[in-house]
Amino acid sequence: MFKSIISPGKYIQGSAVLKDIRNHISNLGESFFIIASDNGIKRTKPIIEESFNEKKCNLTFESFNGECSKNEIDRLRKILKENDCDVVIGVGGGKIFDTAKAVAYYENIPVVIVPTIASTDAPCSALSVIYTDEGVFSEYLMLPKNPEVVIVDTEIVAKAPSRLLVAGIGDALATYFEAEACLKSNACNMAGGKITKAAMALASLCYETLLEDGLKAKLAVESGVCTTAVENVIEANTYLSGIGFESGGLAAAHAVHNGFTVLEQCHHLYHGEKVAFGTIVQLVLENRTMEEIEEVIGLCLDLYLPITLEDMGIIEIKEEEIRSVAKATCSEGETVYNMPFEINEDVVYAAILSADAIGRLYK
């Protein structure tokens, strides 16, 4: 079995780098299909149009409907074809990135990712998470390549609500622990190979950066400024976690996240907020030391990430609901089976309730 590490063709991060987007992607094509939210189009369209002002090309902006579903992907593919576009650009957050990557994959054209928030590690990956139109996890779409270019304008990202940056920290929080679990079980990473030392080093650096700069970055963003800590956390959330999870592998934390998507009470949470609690559940599954668990819970408390079921929106704990989460977590093909020991619904159910009990000690 081979080892592998994969990444986007080019990663660019810095203040006001969106102004130079033409210089970074003009070699990819001549007709660009730009997917963003209504607000994302309002914020970035003038900057993108100005960048392309001196080059004759077609720019087609289309609003995202809000869910990375098969129906939304098909709708956007139709509009792309009608405008004869040969490059997809996803501007915004995780579900827009996953949708843009899926559209580009089915149309066999390049994709460029432009985060305006740092809430997930989706920008760099060769993966799209597909949901139903109602927002319930459906499947992972494994892609043959990573995005051609990822452009992160930290001036824009730092202006987003701090909750989004914190959600990205919650998502990135799982990276090292999931990669380590995959290494112990000799599981394959998301690229289909075994884990390299480089991937583990990036995953470890990701966790260290979050512990060192996570709270400082949150406070800076809340103060309306972009500091070195903010820059570091944006890189950790986007690149270190992106390469770390994909080339290191996923395990229980993200499977637990997928499990919680079956509960309507949790639909108000961002992806990374659910992953943060899923990380605590994974640590309980592994029977980690209280010192290790307290370190993660301490960061979550500093950032107001969920550490209990009540934080997840589950006010009244009902056995049948938590068991439905455990069942979904243990669905066939889920990444929870990358854990280095036997997994079943009862074990996951117990870990969820135990994680909740531990979390309540700190409330």
Score class of each variant (00 low, 15 high):
Ile5Lys: 09
Ser7Asn: 07
Pro8Arg: 00
Gly9Cys: 03
Lys10Phe: 01
Tyr11Lys: 05
Gln13Thr: 02
Gln13Gly: 01
Ile25Ala: 07
Ser26Gly: 00
Ile41Ala: 00
Arg43Pro: 00
Thr44His: 04
Lys45Thr: 03
Ile48Glu: 04
Cys57Met: 06
Glu67Ser: 08
Lys70Trp: 14
Glu72Ser: 13
Asp74Gly: 02
Leu80Pro: 04
Lys81Ile: 12
Val87Trp: 07
Lys95Phe: 06
Asp98Val: 15
Ala100Ser: 15
Pro110Leu: 12
Ser119Val: 12
Ala122Ser: 15
Ala122Asp: 03
Cys124Leu: 09
Val129Ala: 04
Val136Gln: 11
Asn146Lys: 15
Val150Pro: 03
Glu155Asn: 13
Val157Ile: 11
Pro161Cys: 03
Leu165Gly: 10
Ile169Asp: 00
Gly170Leu: 11
Ala172Thr: 00
Leu173Trp: 12
Tyr176Gly: 01
Ala179Arg: 01
Ala179Trp: 03
Glu180Thr: 04
Lys197Gln: 07
Ala201Ile: 02
Leu205Cys: 01
Glu208Leu: 13
Leu211Tyr: 10
Leu219Met: 05
Glu246Gln: 11
Leu250Lys: 02
Ala251Val: 00
Ala255Met: 08
Thr279Met: 08
Gln282Gly: 11
Leu283Trp: 08
Glu294Tyr: 13
Ile297Trp: 13
Ile307Asn: 01
Leu309Pro: 13
Arg323Thr: 05
Ala326Glu: 06
Glu332Thr: 14
Met339Gly: 09
Phe341Asp: 06
Ile343Leu: 03
Val347Trp: 07
Ile352Thr: 02
Ser354Asn: 15
Ile358Gln: 08
Ile358Thr: 05
Arg360Gly: 11
Tyr362Gln: 13
